[in-house]
Design a protein around this nucleic acid. Structure first.
Lengths: 217, 217
DNA sequence: CCTACTGTTAACTAGTAGCGAACACTTTGC
DNA sequence: GCAAAGTGTTCGCTACTAGTTAACAGTAGG
């Protein structure tokens, strides 16, 4: 858990300096003494709620931004490594990409990190956040492609969710065989053995969300 | 000059009551005495900045909403074709639909459960599984629509992930203002105050995935 | 009756919000 | 040169208040 108060002062100072106002001027308009404002900015004293509000107002920033945890806005879109992977080596889809992400990750289609399987399947990563048990990706199944080479069912902890962007795919979950076609969506418990297969003639594209942690029940 | 402090207490009380938490429970989790929380809510005492922040966090509202001038009770803009929901009553998006789901959920576009907000936003549920801290949905922002009526930032525990199906949307996260356009994807820490706004001329459609991880304190 | 919950008030205190005065240092200008 | 006026910072103090405990009144259930 992070403490919102430790960065408060420095952040206020940064904002004030960015707007090129002097400490004394701000203090005067805020109707507090310059010395006290200095103490606030250096973390040696805490303002009251009213003072903080007035200060935020004066600096033209919403109060919440003063508390927002620090993050670097560099949305480092991860480099593309295009090698072919054996699907069976990936135990849980959430482990597909193990590199650390950012607090905010915005990714352009052409900059996605791509995993190409030996089964005619591609995974393109859609977000790289700090959450390690999450995988958000676009999956592409060429005609005839299947989630596993010899048609075995796979299972892993967690849930997964999908949305069909284009084409159609046969989904086997437990005893059920379903067809997911364009604009349909699905969610299921991944601990049930499952398999996907593109039995059609066109490429299937879908958004997939795999969530590895089991509910706290 | 309007005093932000006079409405602070009553507003906190309103929000707490809306979320159906008892004063004592909130006080306990906030680690202050119930009596003091009562004094705060009745305007007989002012919290410190740290306490106010923790309280806002606990109630799931950004601090700024507590200061917003004139509690806008005239939000009775009620064109009633369906059920229209006030966004601010939904603490965490994962609570939007509270009915239990199934282990396997396949949903056709025309059978989706729909939530229409008073802010020009629609949520269409894409999967109803047993996972309670997950919400998988299609979101639709009409031109001009925003995630919150008066442009306030919202924050809640967890992460969210999005993919732009159509149109473009302005995403504000902390200090960053990003544009998410077709086929781009995003993921971020929802505890950073954020907001979406369709500033364009066409309707925005996107897939959204909200994951409200509940840390084990 | 009792117990367990709801929120509220009174009396108190330890801590701090905020002050004024003095500090050290730059920049302006006569 | 040396004021004069600007910048931000530290010290020591006090008036006040954030937050406490204890008792309060009310309600629902058994």
């Amino acid at each position: 858990m992070f403490d919102p108060m430790v960065n408060l002062g420095p952040r206020l100072k940064t904002i004030r300096l960015a707007s090129e106002k002097s400490l004394r001027e701000v203090a005067r308009r805020l109707d507090v003494s310059p010395s006290f404002l200095s103490q606030i900015e250096n973390g040696k004293s805490q303002p009251s709620v009213a003072t903080l509000y007035a200060l935020a107002r004066l600096l033209g920033v919403p109060v919440d931004t003063l508390f927002a945890p620090t993050f670097d806005a560099s949305t480092a879109t991860t480099p593309v490594d295009d090698e072919i992977v054996n699907r069976s080596l990936i135990e849980n889809p959430t482990d597909a990409w193990d590199d650390a992400g950012a607090r905010i990750s915005l990714i352009n289609p052409q900059n996605r990190s791509v995993l190409t399987m030996d089964t005619g399947v591609r995974w393109e990563r859609l977000a790289a956040t700090h959450e390690s048990d999450i995988n958000f990706m676009e999956i592409i199944y060429e005609p005839g492609a299947g989630s596993n080479a010899n048609g075995e069912l796979i299972q892993h902890d967690g849930y997964e969710y999908g949305y069909a962007l284009d084409g159609e795919i046969e989904v086997t979950i437990g005893d059920s065989v379903l067809n997911l076609s364009k604009n349909q969506s699905i969610g299921f418990d991944s601990s049930i053995p499952h398999r996907f297969r593109n039995t059609g003639a066109v490429t299937f594209r879908g958004l997939w969300f795999v969530h590895g942690c089991h509910p706290a029940e």
